[in-house]
Every structure is written in C-alpha cells, then in structure tokens.
C-alpha cells in the first residue's frame, strides 16, 4: 500500500507507531550506552593504573607507591566467611520452605520477609551488625564484616534454593520415598542433586553481590592500612579502600581506586557470567 493511498487516519497511526518504536529503541541504546560508558571508563582508567605492584604491595600512605594486597586479601577472607556462614543457613531455610514446610504458614511469612530482605538497604545491615557485634565487643573486626556479608548472602541463597527445589518434579520424591528412603535422605541424595546446578548458581550470584558491597563493611570491618588476617581486628576490603581512595585528593590513591574498581567489576561480572552459563547448561 503506497503512502499516497493511505487514509490520513491510518497514516497518523503508522507515524505514531514508528515514533513509539523509535523511542523504545532509543531507550535500549541509552541503557546499553551507559553500560558501555562505565565499562570503557573502567578499562581505560583501570588498566592505566594496573601494574604488578597492585597485587603484591600493601596500601600506601599518601604520596608513596603501593598496591592493594591487604585489601584484596581482606575482601577474600570476609567474602569467604560470609559465604561459609550464609550458605548453610540459607540452604536449610530454603529446604524447609520447599520440602518439609511447603504448605505451612511459616513458609508464606518467611518467603515474604525474605523477598523484602533481598532488596533491603545494605547500610541498615551494617548498622545492625554494628549494634549487635561491634558495640558490645568494643572494636571493629573482620568477623563483624563477615557476619554482615552473611546476612546479605542468606536471602539470595534462600530464594534460589527454594525455587530450584520446587523445580524438582514430585514423582522423583515419591519414587525415592516408595523405595523406603527417609525424607532427609530423599532431600540430601535426590532433591539436592537434582537442584545442584541451580543452587550453585545462587551461591555464585550471592558471592558476586557481596564482593562489591561497601555499605555494610563501613561500620563493621572498618579499614586497615596494613596486612592483617586477624578476624578480631579491623580488616581492609577492596570496596572500602576504593571509597576512601577515590574521594581523596591524592592522585596515586585515585589511580589505585581505579585499579581496584576494575578488579572488582571484572570479578563480579565473571561470577555472574559463570552463574548464567551454569544455569544455561541446566536448562538445556
């Protein structure tokens, strides 16, 4: 149909449609543009500042040469602690919701609360852990940082464990039970195995989430300019160091902040891509 023979009404509708489609496309370009802008900045600034000393030297005082080793180590220690504490609790809670208490009232309440905790402000978690650990103990500590991160891990793992266990077909459960296996045996040997890839995905996503978290560490682990693996003492972490260095007036600190930012983003994006790949394998 040529434009000349189109009724004015139809032509107007077509025109509005094209504008609408163009706006939707433009929105997508805006979103992708911001992603590209952030990644390009990180790569340019981060690679410029990246050198072997970043991975081998301690955080320097202003004006001298140094690296991020103690911050990287602190981040690894606290992330590990957060995952080791948070994963079992989250998995067990998710197991209750999908298996033992699938139809119980508790499950409904826990699911609702868990979904809210999933997006609750992480700085409030920092305040909470400050109140229950730092204030009574009288000092900041890596342990408190790890606990704060664990509280962030729990809702993520609860959610994925429940979702993944609910995907396991009930006939498999019935077949296992018919063979005489007790319920916990059915869960640990059959249901967990069937849901393994999904649950690991959840844990990976949780690790990705906490490895960039700054707010909950500010008043729990605080910071430490020196090498320390003592969980009972303040501990450095990459995000907190980035925060401190980026807002400082010293050029070499800012460079280190960019290097750290690149490292964290690379780690987080790799983790979420790995989680996604794992999930895709399960889907196929």
């Amino acid at each position: 149909m040529s434009a000349a023979r189109m009724s004015p009404l139809y032509a107007g509708r077509r025109r509005r449609n094209s504008i609408f489609m163009a706006l939707a496309g433009a929105s997508t370009l805006v979103g992708l543009g911001f992603l590209a802008a952030i990644l390009v900045t990180l790569v340019v600034q981060g690679f410029g500042a990246l050198n072997p000393r970043v991975l081998t030297a301690m955080t320097p005082p202003p004006g001298s040469d140094g690296g991020l080793l103690n911050a990287i180590a602190g981040s690894l220690v606290m992330t590990l602690l957060g995952v080791l504490v948070g994963t079992p609790v989250g998995m067990l809670a998710g197991t209750y919701m999908a298996e033992y208490g699938r139809y119980s009232q508790i499950t409904h309440v826990v699911r609702f609360v868990n979904d809210i905790l999933l997006s609750a402000p992480s700085i409030v978690v920092g305040l909470f852990v400050y109140e229950i650990m730092v204030a009574p103990m009288g000092h900041f500590s890596g342990l408190a940082g790890g606990v704060a991160l664990a509280i962030i891990v729990i809702p993520v793992v609860v959610r994925t464990t429940e979702d993944m266990l609910l995907l396991v077909p009930d006939p498999i459960r019935e077949a296992t039970t018919a063979l005489g296996a007790p319920r916990w045996h059915m869960i640990s040997h059959v249901a967990y195995r069937a849901a393994k890839a999904g649950i690991i995905t959840g844990v990976l996503l949780a690790v990705a989430r906490i490895s960039g978290e700054t707010a909950p560490l500010l008043f729990t682990a605080l910071n430490n300019q020196f090498w320390s693996t003592n969980l009972n003492a303040p501990m450095a972490s990459l995000p907190v160091i980035i925060f401190q260095f980026a807002i400082s007036p010293y050029a070499d600190w800012r460079d280190l902040a960019w290097a750290g930012a690149l490292l964290i983003t690379a780690a987080v994006l790799l983790l979420s891509i790995a989680a996604r790949a794992l999930n895709m394998k399960r889907g196929s």
Binding site: L35, F243, A246, A257, V268, S272
Partner: peptide, 15 residues
C-alpha cells in the same frame, strides 16, 4: 541490561 544490575554500587559512585 542485566549486567548493569550486577555492577557494584561503588563503581557507579566512582564513575
């Protein structure tokens, strides 16, 4: 687009 959600908030801050 989902990767945007994965970038830690401190990175948004420094950027």
């Amino acid at each position: 687009i989902e990767l945007l959600a994965g970038i830690p908030s401190i990175i948004y801050g420094i950027w």
